[in-house]
Design a protein around this nucleic acid. Sequence first.
DNA 1: TTCATACATAACAATATGGTTATATGGTGA
DNA 2: TCACCATATAACCATATTGTTATGTATGAA
Lengths: 107, 107
Amino acid sequence: MTFEKLADTLKALADPTRLKIISLLRIRDCCVCELVPIFNISQPAISKHLSRLKTAELVRETRKGQWVFYSLNEKRLAETGLALSHLPDLSEHLKKLEEQGLLVTCE
Amino acid sequence: MTFEKLADTLKALADPTRLKIISLLRIRDCCVCELVPIFNISQPAISKHLSRLKTAELVRETRKGQWVFYSLNEKRLAETGLALSHLPDLSEHLKKLEEQGLLVTCE
DNA sequence: TTCATACATAACAATATGGTTATATGGTGA
DNA sequence: TCACCATATAACCATATTGTTATGTATGAA
């Protein structure tokens, strides 16, 4: 996972409302109208949060008649948590700096 | 960790430049002037990123003579990754909705 | 003291974010 | 077909984010 992609996913997670939605979806799938009364924000606001989570592939949607149910992509969420402990390696960057004499040593 | 606090920490992480800084600090402590030539942004921009990471307690700073060295708070980073798999439980919220007859069942 | 270097802060601008209300879309059922 | 319900989208606004340049502050050395 690139730094840019991971940053995008973390941005999708970095909001209390969206984290709460994810926590709720861990219990069971929910449709939009169930989520609205939990938060003190409008239905379009909830829709936009869900859309943001969907773009980040953190949730999936399934239409069931009138309702659209959202479900958690547990795999994607777990991946993201793990990615923080396995960031791409930048050792070569430091090597290049060394070659250019840009590293500071002051111990 | 509350949803709000976790969201703040994730916001601090949700930027490619800051993720790269963290990846570099994993290799070794760096001072600001070492980080500047790696990124195509100004010294004040780097300072602000480091300040953001420091506020989130993801890095610590130590002055050594002219230089200020930043080091990674590995514990805080690991904690944050794990927190995604252990979000606060919202089961009671769902229960309250059930009592209020706000849950949808359409299977 | 005086100058240079490393870093932080201030003031500003462009864009992103997260909310609102109004409206469009799509499915259900009389 | 028509009305209704659930959801999405559009247009808008306030604030946050992320960069810039200019300037202030702290340390080290002449």
